[in-house]
Design a binder for these strands. Structure first.
Length: 612
RNA sequence: GGGCGCGUAGCAUAGCCCGGACGAUGCGCCGGCCUUCUAAGCCGGAGAACCGGGGUUCGAAUCCCCGCGCGCCCGCCA
């Protein structure tokens, strides 16, 4: 993003389609009422749909009213259409095949759209500020080792959601919930609190640690993470080790151990993970440590609230839970437990305390979770209700990323680490850039390659609807052509190139183009120009829709579509050496396309490059 | 066995929530375009009656039912 992308203050965000939809409803209503229809403006607004290309800009099917109004759909459409007085926005209203078709003034629409984009700049597409606040929790990986590509899907979906909600006008806080209690955390303390020389040889050997000191180039998550699977395996096989781990775990949960001590390794691993995520342009506003809920008494407090609920159940031996069958738990196992018979609290108890804290601060709570956590989420929902919280968390789940050989397993060693993917993507991108740009200094090559590589990875994961599983294949993940981030970035770079030559400087593109007045718009638009304008006009509606439906994958597909429309436009039509009558318009269109590409890329967390 | 999700050209995906006017896109395949704004691109072509079967409807990829296939889950783990 460049400095000029900042929005001028005081300008209200806008959607070119807003006024048009409103106008069409107003025009339609009297004519429909004349035919005997009774209904609301809201109903009309819902029925208005974009028509097929060339046939209508907004269309209204008459089939649904045909019976009640006692006319054949096509006759009804004709009657309605002829009863509508054309307006400046819609100079023509026609009927065909049972649809009433509104035809807008394309030149005026083009002018409006370009002005909104060019004046809105970085805020084109953004929605008006919302009153409420939203907390988005995502990633929340256990800090036991490096992040694998599967978990990074959580980050991509979550971080994009954060971005799109912000664009839509919400006040958003992103949170990473860090697990620093329980068995997994204890295991790290157990092994790393002794010097390597005192480790069981089995673990030492299987960990493949090069020496006693962490090599300077090796990230903490990889260094500490190497010992984790062997340690877990060892503890499974050795009873005395399991016993000492249990003791350690109990000591940690009792509060006897200072948190600096048990958080030391997780913290370092977390930092390693975060530096990987930073390469993907994902960052967090807040970190919430699970152990805090244990020691500040909040788990006890929320447990008391739950006990007062009619859902509360206690088993014969003293374990505690709530009945959650109406939240989707199976009848055979209806209880969502929060405390063991031995009196220690379970993970859901801390998660409940965490969620209550979220609801105390935020109006909306969104959790991004792997599909393996669906049932757990239902249990927490039941606990929340039992604790007296009326609202419920919006849970967004996603399918796993599998390998062609099957599911990823850390213990089986069948994993693909995010860092390895990013490194490989970077490497390949360097080669690609070198191949076509011998003139660039090497540090710029590196910079471009990093943006291209991480963008490609992020886009590849984002473009698939979250519910669908993904099979990770290197060749597909690292493709730089077609439906990919580099394709979009390339279109942006080409736009910048044109704008540099058009009158910007050698180094920066000409981003300020006078807002196109109506008289600058050609009397008839070329189909490629029209298609591009129409696509550019869709961003505000899309951001509003995605922020509601949370279907973030649509943003990636839209980015591709804008790039495609722009590519088709500039390959078919000259911009710089075009005739004087169309040149200002085409420049403005190029400028607007660049802006929309930049804004869309920003929402999906991919760098908009000025050259590549 | 039960619950939730998914099933669209050789492969990978969008469209399904809110049924509508010709099923879209990418990879791959075939054929073109670098002496004019970077070929990570563009243009043209072949390729699917949308898992199967019923139903609702003027109209179904989209809604309902029954199958089949795949994924995830069904712990006093997290």
């Amino acid at each position: 993003m460049t400095a000029t992308d900042a929005a001028p203050s005081g300008k209200l965000p806008t959607d070119p389609w807003g006024p048009l939809r409103a106008r069409a409803s107003e025009m339609l209503r009297p004519s429909l009422e004349h035919a005997g229809w009774k209904g609301t403006v809201e109903e009309l607004a819902r029925v208005l749909e974009p028509g097929p290309e060339g046939k209508a800009d907004l269309a209204v099917p008459m089939f649904r009213w045909s019976k009640t109004l006692g006319k054949r759909p096509d006759d009804l459409a004709k009657a309605i259409a002829s009863g509508i007085t054309p307006s400046p926005e819609f100079p023509r209203v026609s009927a065909e095949g049972g649809f009433v078709n509104f035809h807008m003034d394309l030149r005026a629409f083009t002018s409006t759209t370009l002005r909104m984009v060019l004046e809105g700049k970085g805020s084109y597409g953004a929605g008006a500020a919302k009153a409420g606040s939203v907390c988005v929790e995502h990633t929340s990986a256990n800090p036991t080792g490096p992040l694998h590509i599967g978990r990074s899907r959580n980050t991509v979906i979550g971080d994009t959601l954060v971005r799109v909600l912000r664009a839509a006008g919400w006040n958003v806080v992103s949170q990473f919930y860090v697990d620093d209690v329980g068995r997994q955390a204890a295991m790290l303390v157990w092994i790393w609190s002794k010097p390597l020389s005192e480790w069981p040889p089995q673990i030492r050997e299987a960990s493949h640690l090069p020496g006693d000191e962490r090599p300077p180039g090796l990230k903490a998550d990889h260094w500490y993470g190497r010992a984790y699977p062997p340690t877990a395996a060892y503890i499974k096989e050795h009873e005395e080790a399991a016993r000492s781990l249990a003791e350690l775990s109990a000591r940690m949960e009792s509060g006897a151990m200072p948190k600096e001590e048990y958080r030391k390794v997780p913290k370092e691993i977390l930092d390693g993970i975060l530096s990987s995520l930073a390469r993907m342009h994902a960052a967090f506003d807040e970190f919430v440590w699970e152990s805090d809920f244990l020691f500040d008494g909040s788990v006890e407090r929320v447990a008391e609230k739950v006990r007062a609920s009619s859902r509360y159940r206690r088993t014969d031996d003293g374990a505690e839970g709530v009945d959650a069958t109406d939240f989707g738990l199976p009848k055979e196992a209806p209880l969502a437990y929060f405390r063991r018979a031995d009196g220690t609290y379970l993970y859901p108890a801390r998660d409940l305390a965490y969620h209550l804290q979220k609801f105390a601060r935020f109006d909306r709570v969104i959790d991004v979770l792997g599909e393996d956590h669906k049932l757990h989420a239902k249990g927490v929902a039941a606990l929340l209700e039992a604790a007296g919280e009326k609202r419920s968390a919006e849970v967004l789940t996603y399918g796993f990323i599998n390998l062609p050989e099957g599911r990823m397993t850390t213990r089986g060693g069948r994993v693909v680490n995010l860092d390895d993917v990013l490194d490989e993507a970077h490497e390949r991108a360097v080669q690609e850039v070198r191949k076509r740009r011998e003139d660039l200094p090497s540090e710029e090559v590196e910079r471009i390659a990093e943006s291209v590589g991480s963008g490609a990875v992020r886009f590849h994961i984002l473009r698939v609807q979250p519910e669908k599983p993904i099979v990770f294949r290197w060749e597909e993940a690292l493709s730089f052509e077609g439906k990919s981030a580099p394709f979009v970035q390339y279109a942006h770079a080409r736009a910048c190139s044109i704008l540099r030559k058009a009158g910007g400087s050698e180094t920066s593109p000409m981003l300020v183009v006078p807002s196109p007045a109506l008289e600058q718009i050609p009397p008839t638009l070329h189909p490629k120009e029209e298609a591009l304008v129409r696509t550019l006009s869709q961003l505000p509606g899309l951001i509003a829709r995605v922020s509601e439906s949370r279907s973030v994958h649509l943003l990636a597909l839209y980015a591709h579509e804008v790039a495609e429309r722009f590519n088709e436009f500039y390959q078919e039509l000259r911009v710089l050496n075009s005739e004087d009558e169309v040149r200002p318009f085409r420049l403005a269109l190029t400028c607007a396309a660049r802006q929309v590409l930049a804004n869309t890329l920003a929402v999906i967390g991919v760098d908009a490059l000025e050259r590549m």
